[in-house]
Design a protein around this nucleic acid. Sequence first.
RNA 1: CGGGGCGUAGCGCAGUCUGGUAGCGCGUCUGGUUUGGGACCAGAAGGCCCCGAGUUCGAAUCUCGGCGCCCCGACCA
Length: 508
Amino acid sequence: MNAKTPKTAISPTRAENYSEWYQKIVRASDFAELSGVRGCQILKAWGYGVWEQMQRDLDRRFKETGHENYYFPIYIPLSYFQREAEHVDGFAKEMAIVTHHRLTKNAEGKLVPDGELEEPLVIRPTSETIIGEAMSKWIQSYRDLPLLLNQWANVSRWEMRPRILLRTAEFLWQEGHTAHETHDEAMAETKKMLDVYAEFVQDYMAVPVIKGEKIAAERFPGAVTTLCIEAMMQDGRALQAGTSHYLGHSFAKSCNIQFQSRTGTLEFAHTTSWGMSTRLLGALVMTHGDDNGMKVPPRLAPYQLVIVPILRDDSPKDEIMAYCEQLKADLLCETLDGNPLRVKLDGRDIPSTDKRWDWIKKGAPLVLEIGAKDIANHKVCFTRRDKMEDGKNFEDRATFIGNAGAILTDIQHALYNAALAFRTQRLVTNIKDWAAFESYFSKDADNSFTGGQGFVRAKWCGDDASLAKLEPLGVTVRCIPFDQDGQEGTCVLTGQPATQEVIFARAY
RNA sequence: CGGGGCGUAGCGCAGUCUGGUAGCGCGUCUGGUUUGGGACCAGAAGGCCCCGAGUUCGAAUCUCGGCGCCCCGACCA
């Protein structure tokens, strides 16, 4: 392999087959792999490590906004779901149900379920019902409000169409659940947590998002208002990166969450819920991945710098390793955002070049190569994962160490800016009528990476019946962005007068 | 739930049509030569060929029946 025969680490490339590229990069980056269990994945060390970083920062934000962590059962009695009609309609088709509690051997010696449960238990697809049940006991008075809690958990939805990281039968997430005295307070909470999400996704994941509200047809089952952040993937499709719901009295009524108000009357609480999941790892891959693998934003990288010792048989191995250890120790004293840098010295007994590509594919922000020459010259050789085209950089050891945090900050921003530039280029605002709309989403539908489709921002009259026109195109209304120009215009679907702008896109 | 595909070495696959001692590439292990953009040579280890029942002297291969997983759509985070 040399420079004359360029080759990508991931094959096929995005342009050749985006969907297959996605499967390959998820595996090659060591984010996740299929488990052999239908629709279920194994999160691997590097991908799970990114999730741990995400958890750490989100958890900090939740606590800063007054929430506390709880843990509720994974099993939810079936009857709990029956209380909220709309909610059950939305989830009924995709739940795993436990009906037995024992295994016995049958005549052929095969293990079969035995001991049928009186009442089936649903493996939680989301916990509104069971948390609502607990809240109804905990809340008696307005003095018990607001109740602000969060849960880190696994949930299960028996999806018809699994897709690694993006839609699996079991996934990890956090779900916030709160109860409030008034509509305004609950609505403020709903918005606040959406802001928390948006800030996190943009600042930490380096993924630009559009904040908005879901139209009625796209709302969470049981919600009065669903707010969301939508991100654009590299094939132009939208991915819902987080949702925050104002649930009104839906669950308060079905779970009987009532309190005595300041004036002594009995009132229903206003509840909210909001969640983010390991699906965001998929968003990260489809936002920052390229044909050589992943690029993990420094703030989320389990290791921000990886030191690869360059060892040859004639190298003074002990000396090089000792030098690398010292370099690592010095780097650990440096910081990013006030936190110590995360540094890995890759001491595996495999060829140095393999190590290098391994970390390129995983997307470590900075890969350092240290050999005898560098030691002699007091240099550090490093590659920026976001600027592979720059090749290897050589910097004085002391200078590099002093700059490491700044370089990582620069990478963090560069990744965000690249993603924002991509989205800007594919966010179309000049489509005003159905003919242009239809033509835009019809072109080159087989290869959305090169096809160039993305988001269409246009006026919509709000008539649900008009959405039927979108079905053949596979397009949906992603959200009603918060920032509206308020100008009169015409609906891109019907030609009727419309002032509200929405985002149209294909979605994951 | 429709449509398609696949179950053979750790991974990716050929072999199945036309039954006859289980193959290839990568990876792994040994030894040597190499080495800063993904090395090469030689040798070696590694298999209930998804499961069950048939047909047959003989089944990875043919017949019937199961099971599992993946991909593409509709539903959804």
